[in-house]
């Protein structure tokens, strides 16, 4: 409550000022716990260095998770009876603001280290061999839900378009302006699917029409919806939430 009044009173100020006040607030919370007393010697007032340390640890955790990632380890699959109904909607906007993509004009754009960059229409994508999975979607917030997704195995699609699978990253740009990226090892995992159906129906807009990349080995925010284009690269592409401080690898 206190925080909210603070935010409204801050409206109109520069984002930099707000950020610095937020950072100070965040440190104060740490201090109120007596963390300062325990950090004696370490200069906690220099908040930049604390943030640098935390960011560094997050990069270290990317490496640890990549090391732990076993390309052959399959996410547990569930029976139809275990499916969560209704399946929760989650995005940075509310359900009544869901982005509507026109399927007739839609074309999936391909960029970067891909041999055949011809855009794909929905009928062409639907004609590819399809497979299904019932897996647990785990949100970074902590909640989880089980759903059924169907689509083309992403590794098959990448092979078909001649993607350079020795590259490090695949980035995604979405119709709702969201963007994220994943590591190549995860992209090639057998359960990573480019999905067009949810619960045996064409993906409704709220679950990501026309397509969602379903990655059961990663947290929910690493599963982009409304994908408009994708690119293969060796340059670290980051992502919206990742650039704000969420861990990039975010594997399950």
């Amino acid at each position: 409550m206190k925080k909210r009044t603070m935010e409204t009173s801050l409206a109109g100020h520069s984002p930099k000022l707000i950020r610095s006040i937020e950072r100070r607030l965040f440190l104060k919370q740490g201090l109120s716990l007596g963390a300062l007393a325990l950090l004696a010697g370490c200069d906690l007032t220099d908040d930049e260095s604390v943030q640098k340390l935390l960011t560094g640890m997050s990069r270290w955790n990317d490496g640890a998770q990549a090391w732990l990632f076993n390309p052959n380890k399959l996410a547990p699959e569930f029976p139809e009876s275990a499916i969560t109904k209704p399946f929760p909607f989650n995005a940075f906007y509310s359900v009544d603001e869901v982005t509507l993509v026109d399927g007739k004009d839609y074309k999936l754009e391909l960029e970067g280290l891909i041999r055949d960059k011809k855009p794909w229409t929905l009928p062409e994508l639907y004609a590819l061999p399809q497979t299904s999975q019932i897996t647990r979607h785990i949100c970074v917030e902590g909640w989880s839900a089980i759903g059924k997704w169907s689509g083309v195995r992403f590794s098959d699609f990448l092979a078909r378009v001649g993607a350079d699978t020795s590259a490090k990253y695949i980035g995604f740009k979405c119709a709702d302006d969201y963007y994220t990226s994943i590591d190549m090892a995860t992209a090639l995992h057998p359960q990573t699917l480019l999905t067009f159906r949810f619960a045996d129906q064409i993906l409704p807009p709220k679950y990501g029409f026309p397509m969602k990349l379903r990655i059961p080995t990663k947290l929910g925010f690493k599963n982009p919806k409304h994908i408009m284009s994708m690119f293969v690269t060796n340059e670290y592409p980051g992502g919206y939430w990742e650039d704000q401080g969420y861990n990039w690898f975010s594997g399950s």
Binding site: K3, R4, E7, L10, P15, I18, R19, E22, N90, A91, F92, Y93, S94, V95, D96, E97, V98, T99, L100, V140, E141, D176, P205, K206, F221, W241, Q244, Y246
Partner: peptide, 23 residues
């Protein structure tokens, strides 16, 4: 109806956001 345009200057939805983030 779903699909009404996003109000970009409104705070983001959900628990992932930091207080001051806007859509």
């Amino acid at each position: 109806a779903p699909g009404k345009p996003m109000k970009m200057d409104e705070p983001m939805h959900g628990e992932m956001k930091k207080g001051s983030m806007k859509k």
